[in-house]
Design a binder for these strands. Structure first.
Lengths: 198, 198, 198, 198
DNA sequence: AAGTAATCGAGACGGTACGTCCGGTCTTCCT
DNA sequence: AGGAAGACCGGACGTACCGTCTCGATTACTT
């Protein structure tokens, strides 16, 4: 018989205050929502959360790290990827959800986070691990099933296919040169699956 | 009353110092190269250029603006889009050039600029107008010719097609979840033209 | 003919703001008076003076330095040493002035400054040069005259004599084990001049 | 039921750890010696002693208090005041001891303690009670004996006389405007007893 | 030739946020 | 009931850039 949960062995010392932890995330999420990442300074978060700066630095390395966690804490997206057996419609459903989210405040915050990540390697890694990867794994599974069913060519580079579907969305989100219409869901999938050849 | 050509009307006062202008761009480009956008602060640029901060503010609104101009000044890319009559090979050639550039320092700087643009609307607009648009127009022309030749379906959304080709590249540049291999040129074009359907 | 004032040659750049300089000293003096040296933090001085912290750090190395200058700015003591030809009465007059000052707020501040100087060598040096030395020189002159007149033995160590007169005052100021009565003026001089031998 | 001697009545709970107490004093003394009072922060003492901050606060009110006790713990001066019947030589012997101590590390620490006492009334009181007073009482006794012997005038203010001997030493220790030579022992006593009158 | 106007360098200024240090207080578990 | 561990709030520290603001000096065009 194995002794379970050696990691939950109560360590000595005062335990981390869950109240403070939550207050920081709430405050950060509020600030992100109100004024974007620029408003979410460590000082502002600390002040609004009624928490000292040191407490924030204790648990998060940068303001970017607080922001991502706050983002997920607040917008903990229901990442419900369906797998109905029809690749095109499954992908369209997923894309539609992303588009909807990105047209709102969540999109602006995500854009700001990716922007910040360009000068904050930790944040970049966190974004990849916490946001991008989970979604890619789910999507990749759906695509793989389609390959297994013989719906998609077996020699397809799944990662690249996903980039050709989601890349354009992030590209437009970040550059803003074209809108994030709902119609994208249809067109993106169509091109990706059938190409544009006459 | 003397008439002058209105555009060459020499204004009174000391003319803008070309020496200072160039020095600023050189300094900014050096700093971008050495330490990324983070190192290219107005103060650092001014110090290295031997120019006063006010002179910089006189001619550029933000450090982002200086950075883009410095970027183009230094990396004034030869944007040679060929149009040989074969869409796939033309696109592959263009993509290969972008990939090569983005794998080097220029890619890191461009990523930083796009990142900064998320919190600097002026920079975002400058990037769209000076970088994205020219390339899109050139690419769009190539695609349009293919449509005219009947090589590509007439109902294709050209903008979206371009996003499905370039979007993945910027996506990987900014998120770094996948590499920017040369093989991308081939695969991206292939999927975009012929899809992945079995 | 000599070219005068090469030191007042107008240097390039915005000249130092006298308004800010004065505001800092006034604010620091107020704070010293109200709450002692402990209240005269750089932040508090900056806030009250309506001046940025950087401006203070630009002109003074430590808060101690600001404090001494503020002390002199506010309490610029009329250091009127008389020299009437009677050493005892001249010394008594000087001592009486010091005692009077030290029993009030100025004494508390001076004690705090000397205290702070124990961990701030710059402040210690400033105190010696700006406060102690001028007073010693004036006192030493008075004593030297008395020596010249034959009123005092020629082999006397003047510095030590002054320490035996002023040392006890600072000792009591700093340790507080005995009061700073006016009667000290009489007794200190009497012992120093005539000793206590029966 | 067990009976205990009432004065040794073992109180319930874990008894005070003598180990911790000593560790604190040793650590504090080390830090005082190495980096002066500035280095002897509560946190540093706790860390070096392997003791929690609370334990320190439990037994000492301020860091000044710890420092004085550590000072005495380490430099527990042999305060051997002799009383040979010759006031001058007795005083000289005492002064020589003080001078020797004050020229070394102990003097620097004492200066720092007196400095700190300017903003810490508790420390000031502790210093007076634990350091100044015992020495004054001993010295005063020696002087009183001399008065009784008729060696010194009966109307002399003993406290003031002691200040005129020890004040200059502390004055020089704290201000550093003059050295603490061994020759002081001789000169100080001579002036105090016989004055400087020609 | 004198005046006017724009620019330039230098650099001081108020301001915001940074990340760190230390002080005291607290909470939890261990002995 | 200690005591070690350590988290917490608060306050100040000294620094980095920001964008603005004088200054005196320079360099053209205008009269």
């Amino acid at each position: 018989m194995t002794l379970h949960a050696p990691e939950s062995r109560a360590r000595p010392g005062r335990p981390r205050s869950e109240r403070a932890h939550r207050a920081v995330l709430e405050a950060a999420a509020d600030l992100l929502l109100e004024g974007g990442l620029g408003a979410a300074t460590i000082e502002a978060i600390a002040a609004r959360a009624g928490v000292s700066k040191v407490t924030i630095y204790k648990w998060w390395p940068t303001r970017g790290a607080v922001a991502v966690e706050a983002y997920f804490y607040r917008y903990h997206q229901t990442m419900d990827f369906q797998d109905t057996g029809d690749l095109a419609s499954d992908l369209r459903a997923q894309i539609a959800g992303v588009l909807k989210a990105f047209r709102g405040r969540a999109g602006a915050v995500m854009a700001a986070l990716i922007g910040e990540a360009q000068s904050d390697p930790d944040l970049a890694e966190t974004l990849r691990a916490s946001w991008i990867e989970p979604r890619r794994v789910a999507s990749a599974t759906v695509v793989q099933r389609a390959i297994d069913r013989g719906e998609v060519r077996a020699d397809v580079d799944v990662q690249l296919l996903l980039d050709q579907i989601y890349g354009p969305i992030y590209f437009r989100l970040l550059l803003g040169h074209q809108p994030l219409d709902d119609s994208l869901a249809l067109s993106l999938v169509r091109t990706a699956l059938d190409g544009v050849r006459a």
